[in-house]
Amino acid sequence: MKNKNIDLSVKLGSLKLINPLMTASGTCGYADELDDFMDINLLGGFITKSITLKSRLGNDVPRIVETDSGMLNAIGLANIGVEKFVQEKIPIIERYKTPFFVNIAGETIDEYVAVAEKLTQCKRIAGLELNISCPNVKKGGITFGTDPALVRQITGEVKKVVKDKLLIVKLTPNVTDISAIARAAVDCGADALSLINTFTAMVIDIETKRPVLANRTGGLSGPAIKPIAVYLVNKVYNEVAKSAGVPLVAGGGIRTASDAIEFIIAGATAVTIGTGSFVSPDCAVKIIEGIKKYCLRHSITAVAELTGSLK
């Protein structure tokens, strides 16, 4: 079987991606930062850093700390705000062919709706990713993502204004039952779910007896969380996504093609690279090649067949 016979494309709702590789929000900037390292057009999709209604300075430093096979971050949704994003970043996004998804966040449902309304007017944006899972802000973020009633409300309200854009809802793992949250999002119009955001965590400086991060807590990401993420993806796939026919955009510690394939077998349609890009900014394109080789080795003609193939 030759390379060209492998169909790497996947479908996210009504949208066809050339392959399952996407960037994870908050780890890949607005695309041009990565230009020197890879051809963005080779990616299946690009998810930008979070955008809020007004610009946000972000948290004090230290904003990160390395842990065993992972890291904690507490950036605090630092971003330029939706107005400036539309003026300055949309022209950058327009340079690429890749479908772009903008991650949106806010302190109130009205703010989410306002950002969504504004971005829905941008033709070049393929969809929005609803960030209801950021653990590093005092208001909004994770507060929405841990309460099924609020998830219903916010998903429903945003869905009303996004029209033909794809609506992805990004879930937090910091809940008792992630499937209950997933179900709430799907019931109220989510076209896809993305999981998982980071785990709330803390590192303590034992000399000063203070948390290392200025925000005290941060979100744990990187290879350390991968097996938990694979488990949660499989759980949501089995309990919600498969029967509802809603695709999963999954990630958590992916660095290699085999990491990505694990997630796809667990139930993911697309996979996201986050912390991996910090270490190897070109790893997404290498993973695409690795997936091709895996498919060849297993005589798989379409990568979409792999989704949820866990025995």
Binding site: E33, L34, V61, R63, I64, N73, T275, F278, P281
Partner: peptide, 15 residues
């Protein structure tokens, strides 16, 4: 000098 995760403007940690 700041703690950096990436060094290329992705992680926003070296504020």
């Amino acid at each position: 000098e700041r703690r950096m995760a990436c060094g290329i403007g992705l992680c926003q940690s070296c504020a």
